[in-house]
């Protein structure tokens, strides 16, 4: 088992910012683990503009924003980047195991920063009833299909949820020639940015149905239609308001959940509702020497804020190592 000063899990904007900040604060040895084949995290599939306005005072796409950090990380000899490396185990005294093609590695870390991001909430988590055909995707998966792989998931789509990801994916699908029949939102308002409602839906003539929910998904092999019903202020179905929308694709965009299974394994306290660490302050966890940042710590709307707060996580880890060393 090797000793490492600081081990960071996750190579998205959060992990990269923490690594750079820790180096700036004097940490000499940083190991950055990323499961994917590239650094950048979720930004790699966010090819739309809207990133960097705060941090760089200019408008960048997700990959451009990520690339600025990737370059800095790559040119820093004190940061060892290990790609296709998946952390599977973390103990309270910071023994970490990770798998990569060809090896299982074990390290003992002076400090750990978890920057593992989020997963998407699914159709199942909001209990949409009906059959289970193909064509029902979390919106982020559809974004990856279209933007990374160049695969068009369907021809006629209904989007569930009007947060920013749902809005952006509505426009993305429309731009690919997919007919977006409607965005279905159970609340009275959209959680997304006003500019996204205007630019992603109104400019494309996509209807946004507030206070509606999908009551059934139809289709045996592939989605054939969804049943939609209007709900009242208590979210109860209004009798007689139901109708059916034929479509072959349903994109579900109903929020993100922090990925904190490693933290849980290390015995840290986790809020069961939000799946975020319970701690005195941002970036801390209930286990000394283990920090969390970015979407793993709390769900962020803006990558710029992720960068800002994750730099703090890097300095906190550096301070911990400094103190622990003395």
């Amino acid at each position: 088992m090797k000793d490492r000063q600081l081990v960071i899990v996750g190579g998205g904007p959060a992990g990269m910012a923490a690594a750079l900040a820790a180096r700036a604060a004097g940490v000499e040895d940083v190991l950055l683990l990323e499961r994917d084949q590239h650094l950048g995290g979720i930004l790699n599939q966010c090819i739309h503009p809207g990133f960097g306005l705060h941090h760089f005072k200019e408008e960048l796409t997700g990959p451009e924003y990520a690339d600025r950090f990737v370059r800095q990380v790559r040119s820093d000899a004190g940061i060892e980047v290990s790609l296709r490396s998946f952390a599977i185990k973390l103990t309270p005294d910071r023994h970490m195991s990770y798998l990569r093609p060809g090896a299982m590695e074990e390290v003992r870390a002076g400090a750990v920063v978890l920057a593992t991001g989020c997963r998407e909430r699914t159709r199942e988590m909001i209990h949409i009833p009906g059959s289970r055909p193909s064509g029902v995707y979390p919106a982020g998966l559809a974004q990856k299909m279209v933007n990374i792989e160049g695969w068009i998931p369907g021809r006629e789509a209904v989007i569930v949820g009007s947060g920013d990801i749902g809005l952006i994916m509505s426009r993305r699908m429309a731009l690919e020639g997919v007919k977006v029949k409607a965005v279905i939102e159970i609340q009275k308002t959209s959680r997304g940015l006003v500019r996204n409602v205007v630019q992603c839906l109104e400019d494309f003539g996509i209807p946004l149905l507030f206070q509606h929910r999908i009551s059934l998904i139809r289709g045996r092999d592939r989605v054939e239609a969804v049943d939609v019903v209007k709900v009242d202020d208590e979210l109860k179905d209004i009798p007689g308001s139901g109708f059916s929308l034929p479509c072959d694709t349903v994109l579900v965009s109903v929020g993100l959940i922090p990925e904190n299974e490693l933290l849980e394994m290390a015995g840290a306290e986790i809020d069961p509702k939000s799946n975020t660490p319970v701690a005195k302050d941002i970036n801390l966890t209930s286990v000394p020497g283990i920090f969390a940042c970015g979407n793993a710590c709390q769900v962020y709307d803006l990558a710029d804020s992720v960068t800002r707060d994750s730099e703090l996580a890097g300095s906190l880890a550096a301070a911990y190592l400094g103190g622990a060393g003395k």
Partner: peptide, 20 residues
């Protein structure tokens, strides 16, 4: 071809087109 990959057999293809 990826357009021929299905969830559970013909009719349940995952994607409709591949951008060339």
């Amino acid at each position: 071809p990826v357009t021929g990959i299905t969830k559970r057999g013909p009719g349940s293809e995952l994607i409709k087109d591949e951008r060339k």
